[in-house]
């Protein structure tokens, strides 16, 4: 049995990598991938805690998050693709049309 703290630590590590990726990378695709890392980090924690407490709820919730992540990725990539078609690149620091 893998100790639960290890699992939580792994989840936290992946979440942190994802967070840093979202915050510092400019490429939109990388940012989306980092977003996936964020979600999956949380998934690990959910699944790990589910095992730890002998409850299926964690895994079930993780499954929901996976489904949501799939749809989010689909929509997100579609948006990025369409943006790319117009500007021929996909950098986040160019994307400031919502500037106040």
């Amino acid at each position: 049995m893998i100790p639960v703290n290890l699992v939580l630590g792994l989840g936290l590590l992946i979440f942190s990598i994802g967070l840093v990726g979202v915050l510092v990378r400019k490429n939109l695709i990388i940012m989306l991938m980092s977003l996936e890392l964020l979600l999956n980090g949380v998934n690990i924690i959910l699944a790990g805690l589910g095992c730890h407490f002998k409850s299926p709820r964690g895994s079930v919730f993780a499954l929901f998050v996976i489904v949501m992540a799939v749809s989010e990725a689909a929509v997100g990539f579609a948006l990025v693709l369409s943006y790319f078609r117009q500007k021929q690149r996909a950098d986040a620091d160019e994307l400031n049309e919502l500037k106040g």
Binding site: L19, A92, D93, N96, E97, L98, K99, G100
Partner: peptide, 20 residues
């Protein structure tokens, strides 16, 4: 609003940072 609108940079990572 002139002051407040500075916050709205339009950069996604700024918003992300704010969320974090």
């Amino acid at each position: 609003s002139r002051g407040l609108r500075r916050l709205q940079t339009g950069y996604v990572y700024n918003y992300a940072l704010a969320i974090v």
